[in-house]
């Protein structure tokens, strides 16, 4: 019993140690500048370990995953990122979410080619994210 408890106690420290890398994915864009800019913003936030950005027309959907132990300030992280991206690209309609559902779905959208499908899916995800319990 003691051994198991001790192991369980130690595991997180190992994981903390090797979690420095960030994965940021952006879907195919025409504009290289925005691509790099969004990557930069997400990369600069050390509260986030992964992010997906989907561009459709002039909309930008950013789905990020906060580090699990920082999840309690999820809403703040969302707000901060949104503000930073909006400052950089004032003419983009930005939506940021730290919800796992959006992250999971945008992962699939990264591979998607059909513009129409992407746009529909982004709309749907935004609606889902706004739903209350």
């Amino acid at each position: 019993m003691k051994k198991i408890a001790w192991t369980l106690f130690c595991i997180p420290f190992f994981l903390f140690g090797c979690s420095g890398e960030q994965t940021v994915e952006v879907n195919n864009t025409v504009n290289n500048e925005t691509d790099v800019g969004v990557r930069e913003v997400i990369n600069n936030s050390n509260e986030v370990y992964a992010g997906n950005a989907i561009f459709v027309d002039n909309q930008l959907l950013v789905a990020v995953q906060a580090k699990p132990w920082l999840d309690y300030k999820k809403k703040k992280i969302e707000k901060n990122l949104k503000k930073q991206i909006e400052e950089k690209f004032p003419d983009l309609e930005v939506f940021v979410s730290a919800d796992y559902k959006l992250f999971w779905e945008t992962q699939k959208l990264l591979e998607e080619e059909d513009e129409k499908k992407i746009s529909d899916e982004v709309e749907k995800l935004k609606d889902l994210a706004k739903e209350e319990t």
Binding site: D99, Y100, K101, W104, L128, A129, E131, E132, T133
Partner: peptide
């Protein structure tokens, strides 16, 4: 919760039910 998020249209806010 992960099962419902991945396979159904639930977000982390709505998956509790």
């Amino acid at each position: 919760t992960y099962f419902y998020i991945i396979f159904f249209d639930f977000t982390e806010t709505t998956v509790g039910n």
